[in-house]
Nucleic acid binder design. Structure first.
Lengths: 142, 142
DNA sequence: GTGCTTGCAAATCGTTTGCAATAGC
DNA sequence: GCTATTGCAAACGATTTGCAAGCAC
């Protein structure tokens, strides 16, 4: 069970709840919010509380086991993929896409940060996603 | 008066409140929150309401006259400098620093965005700032 | 049984909404 | 006078807190 090992790797003591939340994050790379996770797990874990979801996600991000994304002004979103990559938020449909981090950027970390010690990097892009763009084309009257 | 012209440039009809808020943003490039701005202006504008500050900042960011930063999970911060640059948040003191956007990154926009139409770019770094680092050194017992 | 984890209910707080009062052309 | 802007009070909603109960070693 991958999620279990993932917790150990990040010095997080496993519990039923923690395993379930990590598993959900790893199996559903859709950048869910705390509420999304609670709603998804609640049916199969009726005693799960939202507080536990919040506590657990906070723990994960502190331990580096998940990324806390603040790309969407309305919600905090979570990502089990902690490798260096960028995110794109569609202003129309609200989806968050993963983007390869452009090669040019990868070199940049820890270089020329003006003396600050960097431990987290977030590259956010916002606009209209290609799916919403193509819907525009379909319905346009030329 | 610079802030007045700035509003016109972005098709924002000037008003006392809008001018004051833009002026505060331009004169205080400390990435204030809505509440910071309200608190700062309130003494000299006793009838100013927080609602107006929120409405105005929303308008500014929609019109491209200011950036809405979501680097800090707790607060939304605003920046009158809309040129391409990065931000660094110190986890210890909470300050947000402007950073030159590394040359390598500047080229990247609108390139290889996987077909998505990008209208906003946010580069966020988090960690411990150089000032907090040097305080650590002073008090360390070697 | 000690300490960590969980979960409920209540509180918090930044932000938004509804709507009436006001200002500007 | 008509339209946009402002501001108050109330609502909202995501997240946090206090604390009691449960679990694990």
């Amino acid at each position: 069970m991958k999620s279990y090992e993932r917790l150990l790797e990040h010095n997080i003591k496993p519990s039923m709840q923690r395993i379930a939340i990590m598993e959900y994050l790893m199996d559903n790379p859709i950048h869910p919010s705390a509420d999304d996770i609670y709603t998804a797990l609640s049916p199969s874990m009726p005693t799960l509380s939202k507080t536990t979801v919040y506590n657990t996600l906070k723990l994960f991000s502190e331990q580096g086991a998940a990324l806390m994304l603040t790309i969407d002004e309305k919600n905090t979103n979570f990502d089990a993929d902690t490798s260096v990559h960028s995110h794109f938020l569609c202003r129309r449909c609200g989806h968050i896409y993963d983007l390869k981090c452009p090669e040019a950027i990868k070199q940049v970390e820890n270089v020329d940060m003006d003396g600050h010690q960097v431990s987290e990097v977030h590259y956010y892009y916002k606009g209209i996603c290609k799916n919403c763009l193509s819907k525009d084309k379909e319905t346009r009257i030329d």
